[in-house]
Simulated assay, not measured.
Amino acid sequence: MFSLASYNAGFGHVKDAQRLARQLGLRDDKWFHNVESAMLLLQKNIIINMHDLATSVAVSR
């Protein structure tokens, strides 16, 4: 999936989503429900405080 995502969205955007996934406590090496979720957040141009979001994601699990 990473190859297809890189082709469609661009390598840099996928790397940004992987970085965001790590910051959210998700796995940056798994696409579904991990990097995919981070990519969707980036796609929506959601501006967030990373610490608060990471905390809220951890609490909701």
Rank of each mutant, 00 (worst) to 15 (best):
H13K: 12
R61C: 07
V14N: 08
S60E: 13
F2E: 04
S37W: 00
R61A: 08
S56E: 14
M50W: 04
S3N: 13
K44T: 09
I48F: 09
I48S: 10
D52Q: 14
L41Q: 05
I48M: 15
S37P: 00
Q23W: 01
L20Y: 05
Q23A: 10
V57L: 11
Y7R: 06
I47W: 04
G12P: 02
L4F: 12
W31H: 04
H33G: 07
A58E: 13
F11N: 13
M1W: 05
G10S: 07
A21N: 07
N49G: 10
G12V: 05
K30W: 01
M1I: 10
E36Q: 05
L20C: 02
Q18K: 15
W31P: 00
K30V: 15
N8Q: 13
D29Q: 11
L41V: 11
W31V: 04
L4V: 08
M39G: 01
A17V: 01
R19E: 12
S6L: 00
Q18N: 05
S37E: 10
L40D: 07
N45T: 02
E36S: 13
I48D: 06
G10Q: 03
D29I: 08
A5M: 11
A21C: 07
L20Q: 00
N8K: 12
N34R: 02
I47G: 10
I46T: 14
Q18Y: 01
A21F: 08
R19P: 00
G25P: 03
V57Y: 07
D52V: 10
S6H: 04
A17P: 00
A17R: 02
H33T: 06
A58R: 09
L53N: 05
L40M: 12
G12W: 03
D16C: 08
F32P: 02
L53I: 11
V57F: 05
V57C: 09
K44W: 08
K30M: 09
N49T: 05
W31A: 01
A21R: 06
L42H: 00
A5F: 04
V14I: 11
D29L: 07
A54W: 05
R27T: 07
N34L: 07
V59Q: 14
A5E: 05
H33P: 02
L24D: 04
E36K: 03
L4T: 14
R19S: 11
H33V: 05
R19W: 05
K30H: 12
Q23D: 12
K30P: 03
I47K: 15
R61I: 06
A21L: 08
A54P: 03
L40E: 10
